[in-house]
Design a protein around this nucleic acid. Structure first.
Lengths: 109, 109
DNA sequence: TTTAATACCTTGTATCGCAAAGTAGTAAAA
DNA sequence: TTTTACTACTTTGCGATACAAGGTATTAAA
């Protein structure tokens, strides 16, 4: 039973991660390790092997950009911030998300 | 731009299809072609290549069962219905879904 | 100089959604 | 009777994603 449950949980999250990451970065820029913590605080678990390739994809699509910044506590950090294109995409995702919430409500009333 | 949008739309839907299908079948049993129509009516587009393997997976997990029924309009139909295990899974999915809606609200306010 | 902590990156695997092509039963048209 | 059209179920192969696991590199403290 746990297997099925865990699977449905992780499956449901697929494709929503992008939306979550853009949402966080829309408020303030951040770097991967910090992003992971912020998402965890909002109950959305992500791991490194997921987030690094995803950030690179989003950057290659032009919805994110980054700059290096020195840290006083370790190696330099790659701070990502959302671009104008990213903000446009986020608005589109809001629409898609709201439609999906309505769809589920329709099916599950 | 369309590419990104289409991609984010289809990605967001990943993993939610199971939830939609169980929701429909929780109301009444149905067969694949009919399910596709019912989901389309609720704004959730699915195609054959997606739904047939998914129904088989859910049946193998024991959350669905099926029976053959003759049709007056063509070949026999495979009517799927939800099992007790499926109803338990559906309740769990309700929980997961509501948590995810809250998570998104938290991140995107 | 070794250890611990932080941070970024890559590889390999499993799974999913989907386009496309295939199989087969039924009924109506030629 | 054969062909065509419609319905329905199935399979194959591809692209994309999430993740476990392992790797590289910087900094500071022991």
């Amino acid at each position: 039973m746990e297997v099925i449950t865990d699977n449905s949980r992780s499956q449901m999250r697929k494709g929503v991660l992008e939306y979550c990451i853009l949402s966080v970065l829309d408020r303030k820029e951040s770097y991967a390790s910090s992003l992971i913590e912020e998402l965890k605080a909002a109950n959305m678990i992500v791991v490194e092997g997921t987030i690094y390739p995803l950030l690179i994809r989003l950057k290659n699509q032009g919805v994110l950009s980054y700059r290096w910044e020195e840290s006083t506590q370790g190696p330099p950090r790659k701070y990502y911030c959302i671009t104008d294109k990213g903000r446009m995409m986020l608005l589109q995702m809001d629409k898609e998300w709201n439609e999906m919430v309505k769809t589920i409500e329709t099916l599950r009333k």
